[in-house]
Write a protein that binds this DNA or RNA. Structure first.
Lengths: 195, 195
DNA sequence: ATTTATGTAGACCAGTCATTATAATTAGGA
DNA sequence: TCCTAATTATAATGACTGGTCTACATAAAT
């Protein structure tokens, strides 16, 4: 029986803020304010401070997104159609999050894109956590392709390509303030998998 | 006749640092130190401070990359092959930059990826500058496709898709510390354009 | 009743941030 | 040589940073 949800609230707030504003642009005080937690609690639950918090945020997103993808992929048997479908759902996730960004009521955890770039050259721990998340997602696509009859080699290549396309769509989508990149990427999946 | 190149050196250093470490993680002092510019010069040349500096950095990268892509696309007539070729060159650009990252001797300006994500939700001026850069690059691909006989509509869609794929490859490449994402993305281009 | 965990609370630290105001210096042309 | 404008130096501003610290409350265990 859990006493409080303080710890969870802190991680949730950190997750949203890190992916929305970035690791360096988000201050601990802001996370505390948003999660209505006192500073003493932060270092009680996260003795290693901001980096530990970011690691947990990345891992939380990793699991959340992996779950989402798997659920979507299991609903349609045909790999091309199911992956297309999954990408279209991501468009919604990224986009409805954007709209609610001021209120921050959203608990959506959708991308580690920004943290990944911020830390790729400067923080090996976080870089590895992001790499692990990307690999997990990529692997989900690969597995679906193998189940659908693709060779292991081809499935691995296409998994990497699809994961890259999704990450690219996120960037383009956020900067263009449009879900069109997602939609167009999704449309190309069946063509890509027809080979 | 130009007296000094102080201003240029500042922009160059800012460009490299912003894309390597990020807008918020890069301090003005660091830019000064890296560019060996006099302390007083920054606000003399850039009275609007850090944001102005970032705007110029983004625009510099925009023009540099656009030039590179155009040059590459003009060397091969077939759109698929030329775009594939251009992406393979980008792999080198991104990657050799990475290797020299400590020395920072590199003056390469290759991506606005990180700044784009950092500012998409928090700084409308910079977001627009990044959007403009993405559109310019995307447009270069589109134009090549039109010249190669694609319909305007199809060319525009594919331009967006290709641009998204490239941005995705950059993220994946930096996070995985491998140029494989670029290579695999490049391989898919002819398949994508065979439709 | 006493002790030990568990968690809350926020003042406080030294340092860094971007920015500004103003003074000093330098350079070029008249 | 002098004047003026272009640079650069210096120093201070106040806001904010991540992180540490001690005090305090509550509740469970002994």
């Amino acid at each position: 029986m859990k006493k409080t949800d303080t710890r969870d609230r802190i991680v949730e707030a950190a997750t949203v803020l890190f992916q929305l504003k970035g690791y360096h642009a988000t201050g601990l005080n802001e996370i505390l304010r948003e999660s209505k937690a006192p500073k003493g609690s932060l270092y009680y639950y996260f003795p290693d401070g901001k980096e530990q918090l970011a690691l947990e945020a990345v891992n939380l997103t990793k699991e959340f997104v992996e779950e989402r993808i798997k659920e979507r992929l299991s609903k349609i048997e045909d790999p091309a159609e199911s992956i297309k479908n999954s990408i279209e759902e991501m468009a919604d996730l990224v986009y409805t999050q954007k709209e609610e960004k001021i209120a921050l009521r959203s608990t959506k955890k959708v991308s580690i894109n920004l943290i990944a770039l911020e830390t790729a050259a400067t923080n090996e721990n976080l870089r590895k956590a992001c790499e692990s998340a990307f690999s997990a997602w990529q692997n989900t696509y690969t597995q679906k392709l193998i189940d659908g009859g693709f060779s292991k080699e081809k499935a691995e290549t296409l998994g990497l390509v699809i994961q890259s396309m999704v990450e690219g769509a996120i960037i383009m989508s956020l900067t263009k303030k449009s879900d069109k990149p997602f939609i167009e990427i999704a449309k190309q999946i069946p063509i890509l998998l027809a080979q």
